[in-house]
Nucleic acid binder design. Structure first.
Lengths: 189, 189
DNA sequence: ATGGGCATGTAACGAGTTACATGATTTT
DNA sequence: AAAATCATGTAACTCGTTACATGCCCAT
């Protein structure tokens, strides 16, 4: 019984678990709450899991011995819990990073989906959808450009990804613009 | 009781249901099997649901009266089922397209995620991951460019989205290239 | 005759969300 | 005084996947 206790090799956890583990791999001791905020910084390229999900993953990581928990009593309220990555946790994270095949990149592009079915919508609506999306893209881009200088030296790889993010949003913005032009041209005919 | 029978306004279905409904909105009578193949053409910008999911959605759409089912007996095997969109289905699809707020675009970029945690990986691995991703991107781009001429006139909007897809893959490819350069530069120092 | 495509079906599971609840502390 | 932030927790649910099973027909 109990397949994966202590030494059990490769517990194959969901990617979210590794994302959380990875955040702890920067070395800091963090609470679930803090982890959630950090995970929100990944929203530019990876969706942010729900709060309840993070707490669930932490419990699982703990059960696998990949993190340790330190409790701080807070009378009248649940203990505050701090998590830190273990040796085994770091090893498992490195294994995942090095050996596990990379999951396919998932895009659920609701805006493209709308446009795909454009023959049922009226052109004004499509145009609005694209405008909204462009606004959102600009906002993401701006937030990223604020975030980036905070990373720079201490976090070289996150900074690299942030740059990728900026390229990504810029390209997407250009594409949206192109689509808007095409739509306009269609309407004029 | 039974909240959503016939006339119940806005049954708020999952996006996948609308995607299936949308495919039927092109007017053809299709089987679950065919629908699955069509949905795979959306993989360039929207993930393809599992086969079982499609059949499940069709049952739900039928229960809501948004599609009709025509059965063809095949002795010794389950009936073959053809689906066609109803008036109500088309109306509901149009309502969704026009009125429902667009869900946020979801990106689960496992490659960016890997790079984000690059300090734990060895540079060779990162480089490989990027190479694999670039290969995949090129393949997607090529498949799209094959698909596109088949759409062109009859399906103007899908064609538009396909073009967006091409821009998307081209930009992503350029970004990957940039990341590879940066990585190389880091290693040389 | 063997493998692939057509075509349906379903049981079991897991990931992840929503929605709620509690209560202290800090900021406006 | 109100609102936001900190911080945890749980129950119910649904979406969606995996994995299997059946069996015909067609091409090689």
């Amino acid at each position: 019984m109990s397949e994966d206790e202590e030494g059990a090799s490769a517990p194959h956890l969901p990617t979210t678990a590794y994302a959380v583990l990875g955040l702890l791999a920067f070395g800091r001791e963090l609470t679930g709450y803090e982890l959630r905020k950090w995970s929100m910084n990944m929203r530019f390229f990876y969706w942010s899991p729900a709060q309840s999900q993070i707490y669930a993953e932490l419990r699982r990581l703990l059960a696998h011995g990949l993190v340790t928990e330190r409790r701080e009593a807070r009378p009248g309220r649940p203990d505050k819990r701090f998590y830190r990555i273990t040796e085994a946790g770091l090893a498992e994270f490195a294994r995942w990073l090095r050996k596990e095949p990379v999951e396919p990149v998932v895009i659920k592009h609701s805006v493209m989906l709308r446009l795909f079915f454009g023959h049922v919508a009226d052109p004004d609506r499509l145009s609005d959808v694209l405008d909204d999306y462009a606004r959102w893209l600009r906002q993401q881009r701006d937030e990223l450009s604020v975030l980036r200088p905070e990373l720079s030296d201490a976090f070289a790889y996150p900074d690299l990804v942030a740059e990728w993010g900026e390229l990504f949003y810029a390209a997407e913005l250009a594409a949206v613009d192109e689509m808007r032009k095409r739509l306009r041209r269609r309407r004029e005919r």
